[in-house]
Nucleic acid binder design. Structure first.
Length: 524
RNA sequence: GGGUCUGUAGCUUAGUCAGGUAGAGCACCGGGCUUUUAACCCGGGGGUCGCGGGUUCGAACCCCGUCAGACCCGCCA
């Protein structure tokens, strides 16, 4: 059974309806790693719906979280905003300086991410956490937290083995300048928290408004209760023993609600370069990823992997494999015949991954395939600049019957982006030789050389099109008495510097008569 | 130091929760397709399931230990 279906089943035994949640702090550019957070939760949500459960999927944006420090992509101007809620400070310009006329910091990073989510078929209920504070929904939890602060402090100290000060409060008020740093609470009298900030200024915060927030570990536990969350997968950083999940569970109960079960997923890493991080700049954005990778393939990368396995995200060679695996699975799904238990499980898992990879829930997977392997399309896209020529070629090779569908058109457009990008694998790149290298010349036999010479003289006279080129290759090889395989090998060596390749006549045709014949004349 | 997760064919992995003869795909090799070799079809080889012990009629699966990698215990998913 697929992990999402399995989780859905477990959840249905516990609750009548589900609220699946994700939470992310918009402290910088969103990256592919965040997509795992989102998709893990969203796929569980879909699995619940598919099982006939009631379910909602909410994406909580931690817009009330403070700016921790001046990240590398920010200018020094942000020094003055440290400790401010992200919803209350200006978004950065491209050069890192604050843009006082633009959107707030949280929205600035959030909006492009939501756009990317739409593309991969994720339409969450978005909750801005600062609004939950603003409209007073947290007031009761804050009150409970403060009145039970000793107990909560003990939980955190015992479980996370952190030491908290004697006068610790599970609430950080915003001081006179807008920052939550260095504000000391003097007393609590519902609904006001009285404080003195780092300038010695006294003030009070209303717990029914966004005039302060609970610290992270308490805030998370409170959110579970306020939104009635039944499942929130968390990154493994939160999942460690003594981590925020372990403290959140008892704190949530202290605050009067039943917490979701602990659920932890592994991280996505960029192949070869360690974990992604918004602040270190080691990222690939969802938007960039989606310009190269079809959305159903991106979903499939997450869906096919068990949540406790780490994923090496790679927009290089393994993308071919993943994409082609997807195509194969759709066009040739595991059969429903008599199977033993294990094979049945394996089949259900694979089909579940496929089902959850669809951009639109419930859509037939066969509508999401292009009918052509990634590899083949990559080859065609490189040798044919005109899309129509590609459709023609695909019709001839019987990949395509009639007009290309939307999926195929999208695939080709993304393929062209990929080929033009630095991510495209070098060994998949077709490189037309200018002239033959000494090493390659030695691989060519005398017979092959005769073939090339005769072909050269014939090609000079023909109309330059794929059919003519092909016919000449065949006739010349017959005339010389060279078997066809060796003839093609000679041509591949000459033109691509390799002993094999895609249909050589297409390449020669696409490259053009003059350039092709130049290669011959320089090499022979 | 404490803890979590991962380790199955050259590569990516299914199967581990509910123990019952190790399954795929890629790659590789061979054959076919007689307008082709990154297209398509058929076949084949390849695994001490990290290692050691235990429980069991039977262990990839459960238990103990051990090695390796990743990560957490400081508000980075």
């Amino acid at each position: 059974m697929h992990w999402a279906d399995h989780t859905a089943q477990r959840l249905s035994e516990k609750n009548d309806s589900q609220v699946i949640a994700s939470g992310i702090t918009p402290s910088g550019e969103f990256h592919i790693g965040h997509l795992r957070e989102i998709l893990t939760a969203e796929m569980i949500h879909r699995a619940c719906l598919d099982a006939g459960e009631k379910s909602e999927y909410i994406f909580i944006v931690d817009s009330m979280d403070p700016l921790r420090r001046v990240y590398d992509f920010l200018s020094e101007d942000y020094e003055k905003y440290i400790g401010f809620p992200l919803a209350n400070i200006p978004a950065p310009n491209p050069d890192g300086t604050p843009n006082y006329n633009g959107d707030n910091y949280a929205n600035h990073f959030l909006n492009p991410f939501l756009e990317a989510l739409k593309q991969i078929g994720v339409n969450p209920i978005v909750v801005m956490n600062h609004e939950t504070y603003e409209n007073g929904e947290f007031a009761e939890k804050i009150d409970l937290a403060i009145t039970n602060r000793v107990e909560i402090r003990n939980v955190i100290e015992e479980i996370s083995s952190r030491e908290l000060p004697e006068k610790w409060y599970p609430y950080n008020p915003i001081g006179s300048d807008g920052s939550m740093d260095g504000v000391v609470i003097t007393r609590y009298e519902k609904p006001y928290v009285y404080w003195t900030d780092s300038y010695g200024i006294d003030g009070k915060s209303d717990i029914r408004k966004a005039e302060g927030k609970m610290p992270w570990r308490v805030d998370w536990a409170a959110k579970w209760g306020v939104h009635g969350i039944t499942c929130e997968p968390a990154g493994k950083d939160h999942g460690a023993a003594g981590g925020s999940f372990d403290t959140g569970i008892p704190i949530c109960r202290i605050l009067g609600s039943e917490p979701p079960d602990k659920m932890v997923y592994e991280w996505i890493q960029l192949k070869g370069s360690g974990p992604m991080s918004s602040s270190s700049g080691n990222t690939i954005g969802p938007v960039e990823a989606l310009s190269l990778v079809p959305p159903e393939i991106l979903r499939y990368v997450i869906a096919r992997t068990k949540i406790k396995k780490h994923i090496d995200f790679d927009t290089g060679p393994s993308l071919f494999e993943t994409a082609d695996e997807y195509e194969r699975l759709v066009s040739n799904p595991p059969e429903h015949k008599e199977l033993n238990k294990k094979k049945k499980v394996a089949r259900d898992t694979a089909l579940g991954a496929l089902r959850l990879s669809q951009v639109r829930r419930g859509e037939d997977a066969t509508l999401s395939t292009a009918g052509v392997s990634f590899r083949h399309l990559a080859m065609l896209a490189q040798i044919k600049s005109n899309d129509e020529d590609i459709w023609d070629s695909l019709k001839r090779s019987k990949h395509l019957d009639g007009e290309p569908n939307e999926v195929l058109i999208n695939r080709l457009s993304r393929m062209r982006h990929w080929i033009d990008s630095r991510h495209f694998p070098e060994d998949a790149r077709i490189k037309i030789q200018e002239s033959i290298s000494e090493e390659n010349r030695n691989k060519i036999s005398n017979e092959q050389s005769d073939f090339l010479n005769l072909l050269f003289s014939r090609l000079e006279k023909i109309d330059w099109n794929e059919k003519e080129i092909n016919e000449n290759i065949r006739s010349v090889s017959s005339d010389i008495g060279l078997n066809r395989r060796d003839a093609y090998i000679a041509l591949y060596i000459l033109i691509l510097g390799s002993e094999y390749g895609p249909r050589i006549a297409s390449i020669m045709n696409e490259v053009g008569k003059k350039i092709t014949l130049d290669i011959f004349s320089k090499s022979l």
